[in-house]
Computed example of a mutant assay.
Amino acid sequence: MTTTVTTWYLEQTAATDLSPARPPGTGSGVQVARAGVPSPELSRFLYTAVGGDNAWIDRLGWSYAQWQAFLGRPGVETWVAYEAGTPAGYVEMANTPDGSVELTYFGLLPAFRGRGIGGHLLSVGVARAWDLAQRWPNLAPTRRVWLQTCSKDGPYALDNYRRRGFGVYKTLTTEEPEPVNPGPWAGAYEAPTSA
């Protein structure tokens, strides 16, 4: 069985393209901080916790060494949103030698969606992508920030990217096998139930 998947490629070509979201309200306890030490354990946790119900499966088979090699590259950064000290979501970015920075992953854990945290986290992440070379002096200055999202991602993802100033430069439609949602723990995901 297959499903039709639409993938949108979006970009900003100047730092002034960014249209920041308002930060969550005072007293929300939301903070965004860079994970200063590359940590395969943290990154894999964020990847599975955010992507488990969005069919993120491409990195599930990565070994510890693969995670470590990717995260240890100059210009790869992970920025984590916390609410009251609890990880709420993340944005991961990676540069290329030509000055392009890809937002490789972005999203929130299910319990933190729909509360204004995503727009703020994306705003911070994009701003940090534009000034990436200031933290990595051997990198070329950022000339473009780009990402891709698809119809398997959350229902508000594309609109959030557009509101932050990204423009679509390519759209692809493909037929893919019906996704299996592995959840944070492959083979053990159960959707939260309300009481």
Rank of each mutant, 00 (worst) to 15 (best):
T2V: 05
T3Y: 05
T4R: 14
T6Y: 08
W8V: 12
Y9Q: 02
L10K: 02
E11C: 10
Q12H: 01
T13H: 07
A14C: 15
A15Q: 09
A15C: 03
S19W: 00
A21Q: 14
R22A: 15
S28F: 03
S28I: 04
G29V: 03
V30L: 07
Q31V: 08
R34T: 07
A35Q: 11
A35S: 09
A35P: 01
G36S: 06
P38A: 11
S39N: 08
E41A: 15
F45R: 10
V50L: 09
G51L: 03
G51M: 02
G51Q: 07
G52M: 09
D53N: 13
N54H: 11
A55C: 07
A55D: 03
W56K: 14
I57P: 01
D58E: 09
D58W: 02
R59T: 07
R59N: 04
L60S: 13
G61N: 12
W62Q: 14
S63P: 09
S63T: 15
S63K: 15
Y64P: 02
Y64L: 06
A65I: 00
Q68K: 15
Q68G: 09
R73C: 05
R73I: 06
P74R: 07
G75Y: 00
G75H: 02
V76P: 02
E77D: 14
T78N: 15
W79I: 01
V80L: 12
V80R: 12
Y82W: 08
E83C: 08
A84Q: 14
A84W: 09
G85V: 05
P87A: 13
A88G: 06
G89R: 14
G89Y: 05
M93T: 14
M93V: 11
A94P: 09
N95E: 07
T96L: 01
P97Y: 02
P97H: 03
P97N: 07
P97K: 02
D98N: 05
D98R: 00
S100F: 00
S100A: 03
V101Q: 09
E102K: 15
F106R: 12
F106V: 13
L109V: 13
L109K: 08
A111W: 01
A111K: 04
A111S: 08
F112S: 14
F112N: 13
G114I: 05
R115L: 00
I117S: 09
G118C: 07
G118Y: 03
G119H: 05
L122A: 13
V124C: 10
G125E: 08
V126C: 10
A127R: 13
R128D: 03
A133F: 04
Q134N: 07
W136M: 02
W136V: 06
W136F: 05
P137M: 06
N138Y: 00
N138V: 00
L139W: 01
T142Q: 08
R144D: 11
Q148P: 00
Q148V: 03
C150G: 13
S151P: 12
G154T: 12
P155K: 10
D159Y: 00
D159G: 12
R162M: 11
R163D: 05
R164E: 04
R164L: 04
R164Q: 07
G165W: 04
F166G: 14
G167C: 12
G167N: 11
V168I: 15
V168N: 12
T171Q: 13
E175W: 01
E175D: 10
P182C: 14
P182T: 15
G183V: 13
G183S: 11
W185L: 15
A186L: 11
A188G: 03
Y189M: 06
E190C: 02
A191K: 10
P192M: 00
A195F: 02
